[in-house]
Simulated scan of single mutants.
Amino acid sequence: MNPDINYLAIAKRTFDMEIEALQQLSLKLDEQFTKACQLILNCQGRVVITGMGKSGHIGNKMAATLASTGTPSFFVHPGEASHGDMGMITDKDVVIALSNSGEVSEIITLLPLIKRLGTPLIGLSGNPNSTLGQASDVHLFCGVDTEACPLNLAPTSSTTATLVMGDALAIALLEARGFTAEDFAFSHPGGSLGRKLLLKVGDIMHTGDAIPVVHPEQSVSDALVVMTQKSLGMVTIQSNGDLLGVFTDGDLRRALENDTDFRNTRIADLMHPHPLTTSAQNLAAQALFEMEERKITSLIVTDLDAQVAGVIHMHDILRAGVA
């Protein structure tokens, strides 16, 4: 073990070598990439990705990225494909095979079977003249001059190049399909991103008896009782279902500073007319943004007839995991 080794210098050298490899790869992109995209867009089945060893790990990630961005895709291990999993591939699919050398035996064994099925094949390798390169309907060059490994043995720059090529395919296809943020959220419903893009105001707002309501002729004291009972830090002032205004805990503090007679003052005299409202169909994340922008803690939810449908509080949104 060398005690004088410079770990930061090694890391920087690795970064530089892999960045250089990607820059060189970018210069070599050609119409084969366009053909690959068109082949996948015209696919009536799924994209099936296969690769051995480190290429297999990259293939797994590529399949996951494609699937989450609008291109149905899954990974098949080439060894398992030779022992039954070829049945997962149909003539309506597109196969993407990964092999830096283009000569991995487990991949080569599958090529005649893929051809017999009539399934289009996209090969990603560092050698267009390899067996995989020659058998491919479309070949995407992912070769590098040298690996970042000082022995030029461990797949490093080459796997990075293949990974980025997969990302490039996914993003190109995403844009071609007009894939939206909401589409992405449906693939990620369990995470915070999914909640931000899917959870709507109507899913978590307070409705019915939970809505704090007072009549404009009631006293401020009456309003405070309702505000305390409903625990939303505000009351809506309504008449025959029509929203006239809002009174919040901020208004209460200002009234206290002015020595307001709560028993003999109408709530209509202190309310804010034309309060900020939102729709049950709006995203909870957007409602949270509006609250933060206006420095308020709740929004009144109205329907198409401008009737009060509910109230949403900032804490409701935060508890739902939207932040």
Rank of each mutant, 00 (worst) to 15 (best):
V226D: 00
R195L: 13
G190L: 12
M205T: 04
V246T: 08
D222F: 06
L244F: 00
E217C: 12
F247K: 00
L232D: 05
Q218R: 12
G233S: 12
S219R: 06
G245M: 04
R254T: 05
K200T: 14
D242R: 14
N240I: 07
G233E: 10
T248F: 02
R253I: 07
D251L: 02
M205D: 12
V214K: 07
S239I: 04
A210L: 13
V235A: 01
L197G: 09
L252K: 02
K230E: 09
P216G: 08
T228R: 07
V213T: 04
D203S: 12
L198F: 09
G241W: 00
P189I: 11
T207W: 06
E217R: 13
G245A: 05
S192D: 11
M234L: 15
L199F: 07
P216E: 09
V213E: 03
S219Y: 09
I237Y: 08
L197Y: 04
D203A: 13
A210C: 10
T228H: 04
D209C: 10
R195V: 06
D203K: 03
S231N: 14
V213Y: 06
D242L: 13
S231D: 14
V235I: 05
V220P: 00
K200V: 04
S221I: 11
V226C: 09
G194V: 08
H206W: 05
N240K: 15
V213Q: 02
T248G: 09
G208E: 11
D222S: 12
R195M: 11
L244T: 02
V220W: 01
M205F: 06
L197W: 08
D251C: 00
S239K: 15
D251V: 01
H188T: 13
Q229R: 14
D209N: 15
V225T: 15
H206V: 01
M234P: 04
Q238I: 06
T248V: 10
V225G: 12
L232H: 08
A210I: 00
D251A: 05
T248I: 05
K200N: 11
Q229G: 09
P216A: 02
D222W: 04
K196I: 13
S231Q: 15
H206E: 06
D203T: 07
P212I: 02
G190D: 10
A223T: 05
T207Y: 11
L232N: 06
S231I: 14
L198A: 13
S219H: 06
D222P: 07
G202I: 08
P212D: 03
I204N: 09
G202N: 08
I211Y: 03
H215D: 15
K196W: 10
G191C: 13
Q218I: 01
L199D: 07
L193C: 07
V226N: 00
G190M: 08
R254G: 01
G208Q: 14
